[in-house]
Simulated scan of single mutants.
Amino acid sequence: MKKKFITLILAALLASSMFFSVSGCGNEKAKEASAETETSAETKKDTGDSEAENNSGSKKSTTKILDGKGISLNNDPISAPADSGQEETAPAKTPETEVPDNTQENKTTEMPDPLTGTEERRDLSTEELDYFSSFVSDMENYGFLCSSYSIPQEVDLDQVLYTGAGMDFEPLTFEESAALQAANGQPFMTDVIHLTSQQIEEFLQRKLGISLGEIRKFNWTYLEQFDSYYVEHGDTNCVTFICTSGWTEDGMYYLDCQTPDGTMHTALTLEKSGDTYLFRSNILQ
């Protein structure tokens, strides 16, 4: 009986030992299962976050479609519009639309002064002054220095043509003499100078660049039947001039002239015209 009792006790102890062993293994397995459960939960959480982010990206892509900025199918990055949040790059400028660089230095262009002309002013040389002294003293020209005028139309043509200005003329015919005496109401006492209208017209064009009809002062007698002008006098107004100084600019010549005895002093303006000069003004001092 006693031996049987001891055998039961040993069996109980063995069973108890096995129970605790199995329990320990169960706890370890439970711990491992719990760990695996937690790991699985974290993985699912991460996966859920990723899916949420992907879903968010799909929503963003859908928003872009609604905004009209592009077309996206199944969130395909190739077909989806590129929108990284950066500003759109401006198209390259073509030569027609390029804006000039304002940083470049501005180049100023000097405009010629209209009052001084386009040629540089210079004083006349001694040789030039000698030439003009001879020019203005010629029979065709000295008369233009015997009156004052600021424009050609104001010249005193009586003084210019006083001795005929070097133009040739024939003696009066009998018919001309009779007609002229009838027009003047008295016989001739001295010489008569006469020039045709054509002679005077051509002369004025060469010397002044104007016509006879533009002249304001001319007192010769005109006979229409001969188309000529006549004047009677026995003296002369012929004088010579010396150009003492002068300067030129833009084709214009400005001369100070005087008679050898100094009784006449004038400021003359000439304009270059081909191989000669036009009289533009003359102011007696």
Rank of each mutant, 00 (worst) to 15 (best):
T126Q: 11
E53I: 07
S211I: 06
Q258D: 03
K64S: 00
D261M: 06
T7C: 10
E110V: 15
D256F: 00
D138W: 02
Q159F: 11
A92M: 03
Y149G: 01
G26F: 12
Q186C: 03
G117R: 05
G251V: 07
Q198G: 00
T248P: 00
E38C: 02
R122C: 08
D168H: 07
E154D: 15
Q205V: 14
D67T: 03
Y149N: 00
A183T: 09
S148G: 08
V192C: 12
T62M: 04
N237H: 13
L157N: 03
W220C: 04
F203V: 08
N141G: 14
R121Q: 15
Q258R: 15
L129W: 09
L129D: 04
D83A: 14
M111H: 07
A33C: 11
E42L: 11
S125L: 09
E249D: 02
D156F: 12
N74G: 01
V160D: 11
K107F: 10
F20P: 00
D250C: 06
L212F: 07
T221G: 05
T97D: 06
K64F: 07
A80N: 11
V99G: 04
D49C: 00
E170I: 09
I200S: 05
K45P: 01
G213R: 08
N102L: 13
S228Y: 11
S150I: 04
N74D: 14
D227N: 15
T37A: 15
N141S: 11
F169K: 04
Y149K: 03
V99C: 02
V192A: 05
P100C: 01
L195R: 14
Y229Q: 01
K4S: 12
S58L: 13
N54R: 04
V160N: 11
T118S: 14
G246K: 07
Q198F: 11
T89N: 03
D156E: 12
F241N: 05
H233E: 11
T116K: 12
K64T: 01
D113I: 09
K217D: 08
S150E: 13
A82R: 10
E271P: 01
D191L: 02
M252L: 05
G209E: 05
E176H: 11
K2Y: 09
T47V: 10
I78Y: 08
T266I: 12
I65F: 03
D156L: 10
F226G: 03
E87S: 07
Y229V: 03
D256N: 09
T196E: 10
L195M: 14
M18T: 13
E88D: 08
K4C: 07
Q285V: 09
N184H: 03
M139F: 05
T240H: 06
D275W: 02
S58Y: 13
T221A: 08
N219H: 14
D156C: 10
P152E: 05
Q181F: 03
N54I: 06
T163Q: 14
I210V: 15
K45E: 12
G57M: 08
E154F: 05
F188P: 05
T118F: 14
T248G: 09
M167L: 15
A30H: 04
T39N: 10
S56G: 01
I71K: 08
M111R: 10
C238D: 07
I283R: 04
L161G: 04
T196L: 08
R216F: 05
E38W: 03
D113M: 09
E120K: 15
